[in-house]
Simulated assay, not measured.
Amino acid sequence: MVVACLPEDGGEVVLVREFDGGRDRPGVEQVERACEVGPSGGKLCLFTDLLGDPLCRVRHSPAYLMLVAEAVGGPLGTEIVGVVRGCVKTVACGRSQLFSKVAYLLGLRVSPSHRRRGIGRKLVERMEEWFREMGAEYAYVATDRDNEPSVRLFTGACGYAKFRTPSVLVHPVFGHDLAPSRRAAVVRLDAREAELLYRRRLGSVEFFPRDIDAVLSNALSLGTFLAVPRGTRWRGVEGFLASPPASWAVASLWNCKDAFRLEVRGAPRLWRAAARATRAADRAAPWLGIPSIPNLFEPFGLHFVYGLGGGGPAAARMARALFRHAHNVARRGGARVVATEVGACEPLRAGVPHWPRLGADDLWCIKRLADGYGDGALGDWSKAPPGTSIFVDPREF
């Protein structure tokens, strides 16, 4: 069903409608291949492959929609020239466990041949109509901080405000295991224990999903792990919550490798040759622990660390133990990088090992959709100052 149209020069008309998996998949894949993901302008560029499932980044959310922009009557006949995805969920607003229904807009792409014609704006506006129909009070979007056209679109034409500035931190997976921490022990929690801990300790963190149980029990979730000082007696999660150790950290793993793949393009030949050399040296002498660079120049998968939290003076050290464990899980699982996203003021950021060259700085923009709902107890969240942490939902990474 056609939901909007834009007349174009030369008799071409662009229709915005709901994605039809039976006929739109090839066109969506072509648009995805034509659009860069990640920083450009001489830096490394990441291109994504959704493993044949254009809905993979939203289908695990409680409610989701995908729209396409279809050009009709142009020189190429009928073709898909734009795409956007959206989902709706309930999250914590960072104020004493107050929750709000919010929408997340992601995966906006417009073919290079059809840019600067208002197609991106029309896709966003139609998606926002659906957000309102679903009762969302706010919509937010994440974009690369250096992507000026995207920032202008959302903060200018679409009326979003700059909200949070988290960073994506990425660490390569070496050809050898990392030695476990000598100061921390890592305990695996089952889904019930993890849910209890998260609701008690992270339940008021911004963007904490009310349906955390669905996240933890998802087939792509690889488990939740708790790091405590070595020698700490484990008395179950209830005992931990009643009397936590002086320092601790928790995090969960998500298998993005089975949802999408990435590929680094644009790297100079010297960088590629150096990466091959490090891998060869690591294979020849794994006991040396050489920080080898995996092959990122062909499609590869990653593991995502989410739900990072903790407390105590040595919490960053506990977090570092968790990431060493995550590295080894990723190596055994065939992932080539471990990634996470943390807030600008995240206390545990110092414990996250990462290579700055592989990461990115994000900008989260937010828009209030429900002006008629009244401020209520929440007030206007879009004007709230940032807290120390944010919860990044792995279903939307």
Rank of each mutant, 00 (worst) to 15 (best):
V2P: 03
V3E: 00
P7A: 09
G11W: 09
G11A: 11
L15H: 03
R17V: 01
R17L: 01
E18L: 06
G21Y: 12
G21N: 07
P26F: 04
G27W: 08
E29Q: 14
E29L: 15
V37G: 04
K43F: 13
L44G: 12
C45N: 11
L46Q: 13
F47M: 14
F47E: 14
L51N: 09
C56V: 15
V58L: 08
V58R: 12
R59Q: 09
H60C: 09
A63P: 00
L65Y: 11
M66L: 12
V68T: 04
A69Q: 03
E70A: 01
E70T: 01
G73S: 08
L76N: 07
G77K: 06
E79I: 01
V81C: 10
V83L: 03
G94L: 07
R95P: 00
F99P: 02
S100K: 04
R109W: 05
R109N: 07
V110Y: 04
S111F: 03
S111H: 15
P112A: 00
G120S: 10
L123T: 00
M127S: 06
W130K: 13
A136F: 08
A139V: 11
E148L: 13
S150T: 04
F154V: 09
T155W: 10
H171T: 02
H176R: 08
D177T: 00
S181F: 06
S181E: 12
R182I: 00
L189S: 04
D190C: 07
E193L: 04
E195A: 12
R201V: 01
F208K: 05
F208I: 01
R210F: 07
I212V: 13
D213I: 00
V215Q: 13
S217T: 15
S217W: 06
L222S: 04
G223F: 09
L226D: 02
L226R: 08
A227K: 12
R230V: 09
R233L: 09
R235F: 03
G236V: 01
G239F: 11
G239Y: 14
P245G: 11
A246T: 10
S247F: 07
A249F: 08
A249N: 08
A251E: 06
A251C: 13
L253C: 03
K257D: 05
G266I: 08
R269Q: 12
R269V: 03
L270H: 05
L270V: 14
A275W: 08
R283E: 15
P286V: 13
W287E: 13
W287M: 13
P291W: 10
N295T: 02
G301D: 08
V305G: 02
G307K: 08
G309T: 03
G309L: 04
P313T: 01
P313K: 04
M318C: 14
A321Q: 05
L322C: 08
H327K: 12
A330C: 09
A335C: 13
V342C: 14
P353Y: 12
P353L: 14
W355G: 06
R357I: 07
G359W: 15
D362K: 12
D362A: 13
L363R: 02
W364F: 12
C365N: 09
L369G: 03
D371A: 12
D371H: 14
D380T: 05
W381G: 03
W381R: 06
A384C: 06
G387L: 06
T388K: 15
T388Y: 11
S389C: 14
V392L: 02
